[in-house]
Simulated scan of single mutants.
Amino acid sequence: MDDKLDTRRLRYFMQVLESGSVRGAAEVLDMDPSAVSRAVGLLEKECGTLLLERRGRGVAPTDAGELLSVYLRRQESQKQHLLAQMDAIRKVERGHIDIVAGEGYIDWLMRHSLQTFMRSHPAITVSLEVGSSDEIVRRVIDERAHIGLLFQPPRDERLRSHHSHPQPIQALVLATHPLARLGRPLRLADLMPYPGATLQRSFGVRQHIEAAEIGEGVRLPTLLTTTSFSALGYFVVAGLGYALSTRMSLPPHLDTAAVAELPMKNPLLHQGRSHVISRHGRMLAPAATELLRLIVSDMAGTMGAAAREPAG
């Protein structure tokens, strides 16, 4: 492939995909947009087919473009793995790890596995990004992230789960809320009279809630829809209403002593699990492999134990 296609044009093509537009890629590459467009056009001639198609104000890969991008990402991953193995042989600890996680996992990572790892490996750089469930899955599958932490990923043969533990969805309310006085597991219908907050549909937690709504034949009214777990916590602590979410959605910097975690009756809301994932079949570099093992070990020892504790 490298003998046939110009390496520079391939790099421009991948930057266009990463940026979502020719203009965005040109800004990153510090080039004129017309030059980037011409380079991609020449690459399409070399391939004998269109690689990009206009989508709104940006561009998206065609089927051929998607095949080429997967090949190039896999090639880059294999190259990085080779270099990392050589570094490991020479006992030189350097490299880079990309992690993408749900917002609720960030504090835990920084207080446990990631803090420990970065103290022990000061020469290894780490990129830690927050994403929705759909974004995390997409980045791991596209090999733009080595490790992903999220709630209930979809069944996909391209994903490998290294660890999971139960993460039930509960109704989070102030202890003074009327729902906290019912003294029993809640039905979704119990929530109907009260204002609530929820995550957007790209989050696994919200997808679980919608499945439960269908099962019980209700549609919960929502006062606040957000992409932020912290916003859910603030909503509850401020006494604005309830939030259907997991224990991890309560940020540790909030005063959550007065928050009650109420169990739900619907079995679907008890089936969710937190997962640590990577791309199935991907050869992780030694540094990423070591961090992955540390995360799995720490999760089994801390968050797994917390998930077995009765709700407070």
Rank of each mutant, 00 (worst) to 15 (best):
G204P: 01
G204C: 03
V205Q: 10
R206T: 15
R206V: 03
H208L: 10
E210F: 12
E210I: 13
A211P: 06
A211M: 14
E213H: 07
I214V: 14
G215L: 09
E216Q: 15
L220S: 07
P221A: 06
L223I: 10
L224S: 08
T226P: 06
S228L: 09
F229S: 08
F229C: 11
S230P: 05
A231H: 11
A231Y: 08
L232D: 03
L232H: 01
G233A: 05
Y234A: 14
Y234E: 15
Y234V: 12
F235A: 00
V236M: 02
V236F: 01
V237G: 03
V237I: 07
A238H: 06
A238D: 15
L240P: 01
L240Q: 15
A243E: 01
R247F: 02
S249C: 14
S249W: 10
L250P: 00
L250T: 00
P252F: 03
H253I: 06
H253W: 12
D255Y: 02
A258S: 12
A260T: 06
A260E: 01
A260F: 00
E261V: 15
L262N: 09
L262Y: 09
L262G: 01
P263D: 03
M264S: 05
K265G: 11
L268S: 05
L268F: 13
R273E: 10
S274R: 12
S274E: 11
R282I: 06
M283Y: 11
M283T: 08
A285I: 08
A288E: 06
A288P: 12
T289I: 09
I295N: 02
I295E: 02
V296Q: 02
D298R: 13
A300V: 08
A300N: 14
T302K: 14
T302A: 10
